[in-house]
Design a protein around this nucleic acid. Structure first.
Lengths: 350, 350
DNA sequence: TTTTGGCACTCGTAGAGGAGGAGTGCTAAC
DNA sequence: GTTAGCACTCCTCCTCTACGAGTGCCAAAA
C-alpha cells in the first residue's frame, strides 16, 4: 500500500511530485489537480496514481485542498520542505549583478545606499523590499558638535562611524556659553571617538566622578547622547503597492492589515531584528513569522555588515507563493553588494 | 415653470435642497432620492416637487444620477458650489485644539513636528494626512561643518535656519587638509550666515573672483552647497491605509494608482506645491487636481509659515465625499498651530 | 504489490430567470 | 406652483440549474 510511506520518509517520487506541484502552484496560483500534475511531472503516471501520492502528502500535512473537489495547495510545512531540500536555486544573471553593483557603487551616502537597495529589491521582484537602518548599538561615536540656538537650546549633531548624521535639539537646565559648548565638544571628541554608543553611556557615568565642576554641562551632553542613542530603530519599505497585484492578498481586510504593518513599523522592525543573527538567507513562510497579517506572506532576508559588524538586514516581502529560486539568490547577492558598498564608503575614517 | 430658474440663479429653495442632498450623500454614500430628500429637507414639500427641483439641478450640472432609477449624486461642480457658498463650517472643539497644541508644543525637532502634524491630521480625520517639508529656497544658511573622511572624502554638514540638518558626502578633486577644511568652514560661516540658499549660489560665484588661491577649495564647497540645495523636495504621508475603508475607492486598480502616487511622491509634491501660494484653506475636488488617480478624492490644504516666510503646506486627502465642515477648520487650525510651534522653535538663532 | 481505469459523488462557478424595490419622468388635477 | 398617480426603468438579490473540475474508492490489470 502506498500508505506505507506516510510514516517516515517520502519516496523520491513523492518528493518529485511535491516539487512539481509547488512549482506549478507558484506559477499559476491555483490548486493543482491530479490530471495536471500527472501530465507535468513527466513520470508517465496516471492521474489515479498521482492521486494516491497526493493523499499521502496530504496526510503528512504537506498539502491541503481548499475544498473537496479542488486540487491541492501547498501548506507552510510543504513550502518549508520544498525550500529546504527540494529547491533548485537559479543562478543569478551576471548582467543583473553587474547592474545592481553599478547602481549601488555610485552612491556616497549610506542612507541613500539603503534606500536604493530596498528599491532595487522591490523593482526586480515586483514585491516589497525592506531594509532596516543600522542598529544603533553596533555603531561607534565619531564626532560631536554643539550648536547654540536661541532660548538656551542646543542643537546636538552626532556623527557616527557609519557616516550617518544624527541630530537632536536639547534644552540644558542651565544655559551654557558657546565657549563651554565648544569645550565640551572638544572633550567628548577627544575621549569618546571610536567607542560604541552603548559603551559611551557607561563611560560617561565614569567621567562624572572625575569631572568636578564641569559635571553640570557634561550631564547635559550625556543626556543628549543617550537620547540620540535612544532613537528607535527604523526601516525602509519600498514597493508595497506591488503587493496589491497578488490575488491571494486581495482580501480587503487582510491587505489593510498588511499595509498597516508597513505604516506602523514597530512590528515589522521587531520581526526583521529577529533575522539579524541568522547566517545567510533566512526565510519566514506564512505564519512562521508569528504575525497574523503576514499569514499569506513570506519574508526572505539576509543581514548586511561592515567588516565583522552586522549592521542590519534587508529582504523581500511577498506572497508565500513567490519564486523562491529567484528571490533567494537576489536577496543574497544584494546583501553582499550592499555590504561591500558600505565597506568602501565607511571603512576607516581618518 | 420651475424651469425658469435654470438659466441663471438658483432659487433659495434649490440651494437648500442641494445642500441637504450633498450633506446626506456625504453621510450615507448613496444616491439620494426625492422621497428621502423631501423628508429630510424640512420644507413640507412633496417628493414630486423635489423631483422637479432635482431635474433643474441636474440640468445645471450640479448633480447626476448614476442610472435611471437611482437617486442623485453631487458632481464636482455641485461640491464646488456647496463648499464655496453653502457650507456651514463647524467650529472646532476647543478641547481638540488644546490637545493638538499640546501634542505639537512639546516637540523640539522641526522634523518631528511635521511628522506629528501629518499623523494628527490622519488620525483625527481617519483619512490621509500630508505635509510637505520646508521648501529649500525659503531657507537660509546658518552653519556649515566639514568633516574629513577616509579616501579624501568629506562629510558636509549644513544646518539651515529652520534647524534642520542636511548632510552630504563629497569627494573633492584635490585632497584637502583638515586645516584647510576648518578654514573654509570658518570663512563660509562668517560670510554666508543668514543668507538664503538660493542667494548663496550666486554669492559664491562672486567670491571666486576675490578668493584667489583658495579658489580651489572654495569651488568644492560651493559644489557641496549646491548639491545640498538640489535635494529634491519631499513630503510626509500618514494614514494612507485609512483610505482603504472607503467604498468609493474600493475599485482595485484605482486604489492601486492612488497608493502609487503616495509611493512615487513626485506628482504629489508637485500638486502640493501648487497650493503653497493660496491664502487660507485651499480645496481641490476630484478631477480639479488634474491628477487622474485623485479623481475620486479631494485635497484640503493650507500653507504653514514661520514669520512671513511660507515654508510648506499641510493637508488631508480623502474621498470627495468627506465632511468638509469638519476637515476644513481642522486643516486650518493645524496649519496655524504648526506655524506657531515652528516659530517658537526656530525664531532667531543666537 | 503497484498501477490504472471506471464510477459515483462533491462542490464551486457561471449564467439564466424572476421577483421586488427604489426611483424616475410625465401628465393631469388641485 | 404643487401634488398625486401611474407607467416605466433598472439595479439588486435570490433561486435554480447545468457544468466542470477534481476527488475517493474499488476492482481489475500489470
Amino acid at each position: 500500500m502506498s500508505r506505507m510511506s506516510q510514516s517516515l520518509e517520502l519516496t523520491e517520487r513523492a518528493q518529485h511530485l511535491l516539487k512539481v506541484l509547488i512549482e506549478r502552484y507558484i506559477d499559476e496560483g491555483q490548486p493543482v489537480g491530479s490530471r495536471a500534475l500527472a501530465r507535468e511531472a513527466g513520470l508517465n503516471l496516471s492521474p489515479a496514481t498521482v492521486r494516491n501520492v497526493m493523499a499521502d502528502l496530504e496526510e503528512m500535512g504537506l498539502v491541503t485542498s481548499p475544498h473537496t473537489s479542488a486540487g491541492r495547495v501547498p501548506t507552510v510545512k510543504g513550502y518549508r520542505l520544498f525550500i529546504d531540500s527540494l529547491l533548485t536555486i537559479e543562478p543569478l544573471d551576471q548582467d543583473l549583478v553587474q547592474r545592481l553593483w553599478e547602481d549601488l557603487e555610485e552612491l556616497e551616502d549610506p542612507q541613500e545606499l539603503l534606500e536604493t537597495a530596498s528599491q532595487l529589491l522591490a523593482r526586480i521582484t515586483r514585491m516589497a523590499g525592506v531594509v532596516t537602518l543600522p542598529q544603533r548599538r553596533q555603531i561607534a561615536f565619531q564626532h560631536i558638535e554643539f550648536l547654540p540656538l536661541s532660548g538656551g537650546r542646543v542643537l546636538v549633531i552626532l556623527v557616527t562611524d557609519d557616516q550617518e548624521v544624527h541630530n537632536r535639539i536639547i534644552r540644558p537646565a542651565t544655559p551654557l556659553t558657546p565657549g563651554q559648548l565648544q569645550q565640551a565638544a572638544n572633550y567628548l571628541n577627544a575621549h569618546l571617538s571610536g567607542r560604541r554608543l552603548t559603551e559611551i553611556r557607561a563611560a560617561l557615568v565614569q567621567e562624572f566622578k572625575d569631572a568636578g565642576r564641569e559635571l553640570q554641562s557634561l550631564l547635559e551632553m550625556a543626556q543628549s547622547l543617550i537620547s540620540a542613542d535612544a532613537l528607535e530603530e527604523d526601516c525602509l519599505v519600498a514597493g508595497q503597492t506591488n503587493l496589491m497585484s497578488f490575488a491571494e492578498l486581495s482580501d480587503w481586510s487582510r491587505l489593510r492589515e498588511l499595509f498597516e504593518i508597513f505604516e506602523e513599523k514597530r512590528n515589522l522592525i521587531h520581526l526583521l531584528d529577529q533575522c539579524i543573527e541568522a547566517e545567510g538567507v533566512q526565510i519566514f513562510i506564512g505564519e512562521e513569522s508569528g504575525y497574523q497579517p503576514l499569514e499569506q506572506c513570506s519574508l526572505v532576508t539576509r543581514a548586511y555588515a561592515v567588516g565583522d559588524r552586522v549592521l542590519g538586514v534587508l529582504g523581500v516581502i511577498g506572497p508565500t507563493r513567490m519564486h523562491y529560486e529567484r528571490v533567494i539568490p537576489l536577496v543574497d547577492v544584494t546583501a553582499r553588494l550592499l555590504s561591500t558598498a558600505l565597506n568602501q564608503k565607511i571603512a576607516s575614517p581618518s
